[in-house]
Design a protein around this nucleic acid. Structure first.
Length: 235
DNA sequence: AACCAGGACGTGA
DNA sequence: TCACGTCATGGT
C-alpha cells in the first residue's frame, strides 16, 4: 500500500528512520523474571505489537499510565518495580495492600497521595470490566484518568487505535508551527488521526518516537534548537 | 541548584 | 469554558 505523503506522515517516517521502532509500552512483567533495573532499556519489545497479552500485563500498563503522569518514566518504572516486589502487579493483590504500603511503593514517582487513590480507582474499574475492553468516555469518568491517560490505556493496554497526545507532541508541533500552542487536546489528536491510517502499530510508534525525539531536542529551554525536522518541514 | 518529568483535578472568574 | 494553583519526588 502506498501511504499518503502528507506532512504528518512525513514526520513519522523521518522519526522512524532516525530512531527505529521503540517497542512501547515497556513491561517488566514480561518473560516472567529479570525485572528491569533502574535506567535499563530492558522491558521494551520493539516490533512486537501483540503485547500486553496476559491480564496482569494489561494491568501493568494501566498502572504505569497513572504513575507516569507528569513524572519521568525512570521514576514511574521504579514505582512499578516496587509494586511488583509486593506482588501488586495484579488487581486483586493491589487492593489488598494498605494505603501506606502503596504510598511507600510509589513514593519515588511523586504525587503519592493522589496517585495511590487513582491507582485504587482504576483498579476497581479494571476488575469491573471483567476482561472487557473499556469505553473511552467511561475511562474518563474514573478519577485520575484524563484524556492522555485514557488514550494511553486504550492504545497501549488494549490496542485500540486512539492517538496519544502529550506535552511533547504539543511542544514539537507548535515549534514546527504546524499548530497553535493553545490547540485543544482533542483537536491535536484529530490532526493525527485524520492524517494517519487507523493502525495501532503506527499510533504506538509515532507517539513513542515523538517522546524520544523530544527528549533529545525539547527537554530544555529554548525548545527545539537543532531539530532536524525543521529542515524537513521547510523544503 | 534550579528546573522539570510520557497530567489531572479543583477552584473561581 | 478557561486560566491558574496544587499535587511530590528525584534525575540532570
Amino acid at each position: 500500500m502506498s501511504e499518503p505523503e502528507n506532512q504528518i506522515y512525513q514526520i513519522y517516517h523521518q522519526l522512524y528512520h532516525l530512531y527505529g521502532p521503540q517497542g512501547w509500552w515497556p513491561l517488566i512483567n514480561f518473560k516472567g523474571k529479570n525485572p528491569r533495573k533502574k535506567g535499563q532499556k530492558q522491558g521494551y519489545h520493539p516490533l512486537n505489537y501483540d503485547l500486553p497479552q496476559e491480564r496482569d500485563q494489561i494491568f501493568e500498563v494501566i498502572i504505569g499510565s497513572i504513575l507516569t503522569q507528569n513524572t519521568s518514566w525512570m521514576q514511574a518504572s521504579a514505582a512499578v518495580d516496587n509494586l511488583n516486589q509486593n506482588g501488586a502487579l495484579n488487581p486483586e493483590k493491589l487492593l489488598e495492600l494498605k494505603d501506606e504500603e502503596i504510598k511507600s511503593a510509589i513514593r519515588c514517582a511523586g504525587f503519592l497521595n493522589q496517585k495511590s487513590t487513582y491507582l485504587k480507582e482504576i483498579t476497581r474499574f479494571f476488575i469491573e470490566l471483567n476482561g472487557g475492553i473499556p469505553v473511552r468516555n467511561e475511562l474518563l469518568q474514573v478519577k485520575g484518568v484524563g484524556p492522555e491517560t485514557a488514550d494511553s490505556i486504550l492504545l497501549y493496554a488494549y490496542k485500540v487505535p486512539e492517538f496519544v497526545v502529550d506535552t511533547y507532541t504539543r511542544r514539537i508541533f507548535t515549534h514546527l508551527k504546524i499548530v497553535e500552542e493553545n490547540i485543544k487536546y482533542e483537536e491535536l489528536k484529530e490532526l493525527f488521526q485524520s492524517n494517519l491510517a487507523r493502525e495501532v502499530p503506527v499510533y504506538q510508534e509515532y507517539h513513542a518516537l515523538l517522546v524520544e525525539h523530544a527528549k533529545r531536542y525539547y527537554n530544555k529551554k529554548p525548545h527545539g534548537p537543532g531539530d532536524p525536522l525543521l529542515s524537513l518541514i521547510n523544503e
